[in-house]
Amino acid sequence: MMTRHSDSYRTPARLFHWLIAVAVLLMIPAGLIMTQKGIARPLQDALFLFHKNMGVILIPLILLRLIYRLRHPAPPLPSSIPAWQRSAASVSHWLLYLLLIVMPISGFIRVRAGGFPIELLDRLGVGPWLAKSDALADAAKGLHYAAGMALIALLALHIGAALQHGLIRRDGVWTRIWPPLRPRS
């Protein structure tokens, strides 16, 4: 069953979704690998550079996406979706937004309070904004890790549900967000 365009996300929402999804799906393995012991130093340095600077780029993208989402609510789910799944979808989407905000902010705090550079911001002349504080850096590191594990679990659920709707149920839920650009009528 195909959805009508009125049941689909608008093109800006699709673009925000897929840009952020690709970035996050690249950052997760980078973050997991860069913190392992025994990784070659050049690879580790490259992953840290990518992870920190992509986090800085994601902060405004995520905030813009959230503002857009608040101004343009999601299209209604098909009536065939049970109420408990509608509730689960709503809760999981808002938790994803929360985690997508917590992750780069806690990462920023961890890096800056730890006294480390964020090359993109440093090149732009943006100051550190935070004084060096090992206690704050450690707290932010713990939050970043816990939120990262929660994000991985929630993304697995989100992707699993999307695949179930797209490949098994074929109920039009997947086509609401895919493709990233709305097909022309």
Rank of each mutant, 00 (worst) to 15 (best):
A46W: 03
G166N: 03
P76D: 15
G107L: 05
P180Y: 11
W178L: 14
L77M: 14
I101K: 02
A147H: 02
Q44N: 04
S90L: 08
L49A: 10
D171T: 09
G55R: 04
R86G: 12
L77C: 06
V102H: 02
M103V: 12
S92H: 03
A153L: 14
R10N: 15
L99T: 06
L58F: 00
R112A: 03
I39C: 01
V102M: 02
H5Y: 13
L121D: 11
R14P: 02
S133M: 07
L181C: 04
L63N: 09
S87D: 07
A150D: 06
F16S: 11
I118P: 12
P12V: 05
S6E: 15
L47I: 01
A88C: 01
L47F: 00
P82G: 13
R14S: 07
I101Y: 04
R170M: 09
I28L: 00
G166D: 02
R4G: 08
M1P: 04
P73W: 06
R69T: 13
H17T: 01
F50I: 00
L77V: 07
I168D: 05
L15P: 03
V56I: 15
L58S: 01
L66Q: 02
L136G: 08
D7S: 10
I177K: 04
T3Q: 12
P128E: 15
L154P: 13
T11P: 04
Q44G: 09
V91A: 05
L19A: 13
G55Y: 00
H72L: 11
L47G: 02
L124E: 10
Y145K: 06
W178M: 13
M2C: 01
F16K: 14
S8K: 08
Y97A: 05
